[in-house]
Amino acid sequence: MKEKSARNIIITPATNSRKPRRGNKPGKRNRYAIFFLAPYIAGVLVFWILPILFTFAISFTKWDGFNAMQFIGIENYKHLFLEDGRFFKSLFNTVVIMGLSIPVTLVLALIFAYILSGKALYAKRFLQLGVFLPYIMTPVAVGIIFALLFDQHYGFVNRILMYLHIIQSPLPWLGNEWLARITLAIALIWMYCGYQMILLMSGMSMISEDVYDAARIDGANTRQVFFRITLPLLKGVLVFVVITSLIGGFQLFDEPLLLFNSSLSGKFPIGGPDNAALTMSLFFYNESYTNFNFGYGAAISYMMFVVIALISFVSMKIMDRGDRL
């Protein structure tokens, strides 16, 4: 983040010959900042900082929400790292699901954005809206719809694939470890492609036409223009898109929960077959609100935050350094 504060230092106007009546001297005036900040600061303190600190304390206890808290030191964290394989599994799952979905989403979004930004197109607004629409959809509903479309026996996807003789027997989309992750990734690609496309399009619209003209005069072809000009100049937006996708991805909750909850062919456990789609957020929810193991849940949420902070930091560093993408 570049601080552009220098230009905000308020300069007392030179024409200030009249005596100001009120709130006009910079020193006094700046006190009003506290008035404008008060609702936000109060809200952050009460609804974020306080609970976050308290959760930290809870993470060193054994607590079911009803009986008295019991201080157990770092037991929860020890259990998390050393004994409970589900923590690393959920971290692995989350990373894999993002690894399956984010690159595909990004590439598709780039292609769509590039095509839609060009002049060579009819019905541009309609096409843009069509791809963007899934972003507005309630994630809970997405889980339900995909559960039905990808059902092993009754789902539309298997039946159309069988009908076209692409597969011989129905694929257990939601019942197999890797297929489950892929199905979830497909749902995510569907939901977020339009969102990323919009961001990339706005980035592309900021690139001056002169740069393209200059490149064409120098004899660059379409591919060179895209890789040498469009992509590097999009870096800022790309960083934003990737980081927000990563932060969002680590909090993935509604879609996997509903996807495996709404299946026709029997209910899967939270997190799908063999916990293949147990994301960190689901793991947290399951421990805290299904097993009422709040101390452990608190420890999980803290580890989630550490992972998110680390990943955002590292990706910011990497994206900052790479001159070429």
Binding site: T55, G65, I247, I308
Partner: peptide, 19 residues
């Protein structure tokens, strides 16, 4: 504010619900 942008909603959730 910038740090808060990175904080997952789950982080304070347990204590928030209790609060």
């Amino acid at each position: 504010v910038l740090i808060m942008l990175m904080v997952p909603a789950q982080l304070g959730m347990i204590a928030f619900v209790w609060e």
